[in-house]
Amino acid sequence: MIAKLDHQMLWIFAALVALLLLSSVIGFVLSRTAQSEGGKATVKNLNARIGAWWKMCGIFALTLLIGPNGSIFLFALISFLALREYISLIRTSRADHNTLFWSFFVITPLQYWLLYIHWYGLFVALVPVYAFLFIPLRLALEGDTSGFLDRAARIHWGLMICVYCISYAPALVILDIPGHRQDPKLLLFLVIVAQLSDVFQYIWGKMLGKRKIAPHVSPNKTWEGFVGGILCATAVGAGLWWMTPFSRLQALAMSLLITLLGFAGGLVMSAIKRDRSVKDFGTTIEGHGGILDRLDSVCFSAPIFFHLTRYFFT
């Protein structure tokens, strides 16, 4: 099934390409003008990030064009890779092996299969109820009780963040909103606002950032970046009201919520990284780190955005 490529989608894609071109030009100019060693390193990383953005936007746009199933498949893959980053980073025990196998190869595909067949009732319950009960049971059957609750909690938390929360993003595509049935634009709206918020926070933080918000958790997050990023991304989100079922004011409120939750997600995931003494979750995306580093904001904003939209607009 190919999604209908309406004028709104074309406008968004054109704007994204323009934005990417603009950033590539800025990145190029900066690479010629950077003087200090630190500045050169920052610009090099910036250009790696821009290059990765091109690829990410390309893949995302392609799967959106394939239709709802394209998005479901893409996010299923993302969840799998995100869970792999998470499980690789945390401590697991030898006795967790079979439970982990279930998590990767049964629970994760099942969650997205439920989306594929539009079984909403089980989709919202699978990880928080069934997997929640299954994981400790499977661990108990293994017979090793050392650190039992820790191990069960770690695995379940990973499934909640990497599989359950992320799966809410493609779930937006199957929401039954009058006038917006199977419309990929709501997913596009969420991803654009959440990711632009990260980008704006990065830009404002690099330009003006001084006062750190949480120096022990995430040394790169500053009040200047936070305020500038949230305001800019919220403004852009409000300006995109026409692609959503929301009014201008509603789009503004939703965007503000997405950006604030996105910030919360970044902070929480940073706390995990600091606890495990690493800078990034992985190396999959050049310049950005791992998949989870890029999607920490979506993990937190997608489920709340989904449920608010579902509650008020369906």
Partner: peptide, 18 residues
């Protein structure tokens, strides 16, 4: 590093760990 977590001794099914 970590291959003991992917396919430890005595296991048949691998788990995808980096």
């Amino acid at each position: 590093a970590n291959l003991n977590r992917v396919l430890p001794k005595g296991e048949f099914l691998p788990v995808p760990i980096i």
